[in-house]
Amino acid sequence: MRAGAGRASYVLRRLLQAVPVIVAIIVLNFLLLHLAPGDAAQVLAGEAGSASPEYMAQLRHRFGLDRPVAVQLLLYVKNMLTLDLGFSFRHNMPVVELIAGRLGPTLLLMLTTLVLSVTAGIGLGLLAAARAGNWRDTLISILALVSYATPLFWVGLMLIVVFSLKLDWLPTSGMETVAAFHEGWARVLDIARHLVLPALTLSLFYMALYVRLMRAAMLEQAGMDYVTTARAKGLGESRIMLSHVLRNAVLPVVTMAGVQVGSLLGGSVVVESVFAWPGLGLLAFQSLFARDFNLLLGIFFMSACLVVAVNLAVDVVYTLLDPRIHA
């Protein structure tokens, strides 16, 4: 169909435009990282305890840190274009392998949080807007405000204290029960149990945003002319709300969710730290202190690609939701 073909060429165009953007991001990150004093050799030597100057010079040569910054940058960009993200000297593993290992848990947490927070946000926002001003609305708005204002790490720790220590319903931390080494479905169930608290903690925060946004958008739409027309035509209130107003009100929430995906990767450092969830956020945080630039740049590269992809997806979803918006 013409619309389908138009959409496909639009997507292709956007993807091609993304390439120079990502390269520019990487170059900028590279230069920013090199502003930090100290390098990987120093960190390794410091941890090793009394390394000699010769040892550190050897390390620097092995890591390629003794070459001028411009040369290092060019080499890195060249490698990146062939998707060779380099070697992490700290972990003694290729960066791609390290990221691949942590990508699964990150995506799991991210997607669960996204689904949970968006659904709950839309649902509660709907409820609040349906009878604006009444006790249900007030309650939901207060809940949203409190969730948004409370620091993530505190929420996380309190949930552990209540649900894990006092009630003993859920495990405290980690992605699986390490000592048990489950297989198959038992493992899936085990991971699911470990996912509950971290996903809940992260969702509470983002849900608060979506609730307020949804509520505001619904109220704005409810005052529009087409709603009055629909009511005049004799349509029931709930049908107006769910079939007409909802579709329009959801657009700002979708935009917000798209933007949030990018921050979910980084914002989850706190949750990953509190719950010992083996994700990319914590890995990036720790590699900064270890001055493991290859790994950091690899994570930034992946983040940049993800954000570009999600933004593209959001734009495409827009055209599906609102036929007036053309690709």
Binding site: F153, L157, I160, T172, S173, G174, V178, E272, S273, V274, F275, A276, L282, Q286
Partner: peptide, 8 residues
């Protein structure tokens, strides 16, 4: 086991 947060 490696757990980053001291309270955890």
């Amino acid at each position: 086991r490696f757990i980053a947060d001291s309270a955890t």
